[in-house]
Amino acid sequence: MLIPSQMLKGILEGCILEIIQKRETYAYEIAKQLEEYGFGSISEGTIYPIILRLQKNELLKGTLKDSNSGPKRKYYRLTVKGVDNLNQFKDNWQEMSLAVNQLLGGEDNE
């Protein structure tokens, strides 16, 4: 699946930051976690440009490390800027979800 809109891309960026904050991880594991949280089937190729963008904005840092099985993998961890950005995302999300819920709830009540 390709990410269809700018908004979803922004949300995915925040979610990827949250997954990486929990522990240092790599592309496949990030995709799997997103899938487990109900984002549907997302390939590593789909999230790779997002990871690149986060790296470009210095929110992530990638390090090539040996894996238990097979070739080396690039593991990502948050930078200080990344942690700040994630906190900012969480605040924004709270505000937005509250507003949307109120709006949708209000619609139901009308």
């Binding site: 790599y26 997302i42 390939s43 590593e44 190729g45 099985s69």
Partner: peptide, 20 residues
Amino acid sequence: ELILDGQQRGDDIQKVMGGQ
């Protein structure tokens, strides 16, 4: 790296890249 990691799991490039 993504392709080799996929190969290790038995996934082809189609699955790794999502086809597009």
